[in-house]
Design a protein around this nucleic acid. Structure first.
Lengths: 205, 205
DNA sequence: CGAGGTTCTGGACGACTGTCAAGGAAATCG
DNA sequence: CGATTTCCTTGACAGTCGTCCAGAACCTCG
């Protein structure tokens, strides 16, 4: 009972948490590459400089590891997107930045978004994932809603949809673009960009 | 070389195909219950009156079985939906039937649609599924497009979106409603109904 | 240096997977 | 009826999986 490794830190700047993050980032790469169903703890460990046993030293089980990974993914994703759309000062400029931001993250982080859609589907079956997936979904919905309200203020009109409705539409658009992009369609990102620009005004009629 | 069971039928009305369908339907139930990642061939066989070996008598491997299942799912899904929306003779009536049809299939076939979103996510990783998933996606897109063009004719206006764009939006709406419904939200189906009715006119501005 | 805690290794365990083959059971047909 | 094809069961195979653990390695501090 002395060496339960879950909570026994002492060193400065929490080396324990640092290694957790390091392992989670490696796991994130492997998960994004193979998908949830095909990723084993041993495969994750192979993409690190450690052996497979260490994962159970830093994470209670596979669910805790994946949960931790997914939370890391969220903050990086939302932060980057907010930065992209924060610079616009006209309605049309914001719509363009919105489309460009979505297209950019589609091009650059396609495999991570693929993992997101995978895990969200898994959460439909595995209740252990639902809380974290719902939390990320909420933060993505809020991210989209910031764009919509920003567009509203710059354009002087109020949106005629709910936050959830707007997010569902953008999510559908993004999911389709992702599938096409991963299938090799060169124009997927461009279509997403123009599609998002097209969609935004339709939320105000 | 005489007894390769893949093609060696003779009896009337193809008993072989009948049993394939029977096994595939049982597999579909099990897959919808557990999801792709957690469903094994033995578990599928347990939900039938046969032993696990018979699956390899009627299907070459797991991929062929699941592929066959998914194709069965498609025809049932699209046929039923088309019947629901075929009766409308006004634009508003068609929008209502569209929303009601989506809400009804959400309520009645939630677990099957859950499987669909699961398999579509798997196809992002596993190229073996992509062709079949793309085919189903196309048929669903055509199904939505029939509603849109029908609405256009009844309303005397032409849609201002592409078929793929319209499908992406409806799919996003449905996916979100499905997640909420499976999470126990009582109003998910109603929101989907009104959401679809709300979305349809926005494709004509 | 040595004691004691922390970190990591590598092997083992039992359970489970898809696949296959040998042979029994059942149906079909000459 | 017996022979032959079709259908199905059973058990095995070689892997992989998550998990756990004994102990080596490492680090820190007295």
């Amino acid at each position: 009972m002395t060496s339960s490794p879950v909570r026994a830190r002492r060193s400065p700047a929490d080396k324990f948490e640092d290694r957790r993050r390091e392992l989670a980032d490696a796991a994130l790469l492997t998960l994004a590459e193979l998908g949830y169903a095909r990723t084993s703890l041993r495969t994750i460990a192979e993409n690190t400089s450690f052996s497979h046993g260490v994962l159970h030293y830093y994470f209670r089980d596979k669910v805790e590891l994946i949960t931790y990974c997914v939370q890391r993914y969220k903050v990086a994703c939302v932060q980057r997107y907010d930065a992209v759309v924060s610079g616009a000062d006209t309605a049309d400029g914001l719509a363009a930045a919105c489309g460009e931001g979505l297209a950019a993250t589609l091009r650059e982080d396609a495999v991570l978004h693929r993992l997101w859609y995978d895990l969200r589907a898994q959460a439909l079956f595995e209740p252990a994932f639902r809380a974290d997936v719902a939390e990320i979904d909420d933060s993505l919905q809020a991210m989209i809603w910031r764009v919509v309200t920003g567009y509203a203020e710059l354009g002087g009109r109020a949106p005629t949809v709910t936050s959830a409705f707007a997010y569902a539409l953008f999510d559908g658009l993004f999911g389709q673009a992702l599938a096409r992009h991963l299938d090799g369609a060169q124009d997927a990102a461009d279509d997403l960009r123009t599609g998002a620009q097209d969609l935004l005004p339709r939320l105000f009629v």
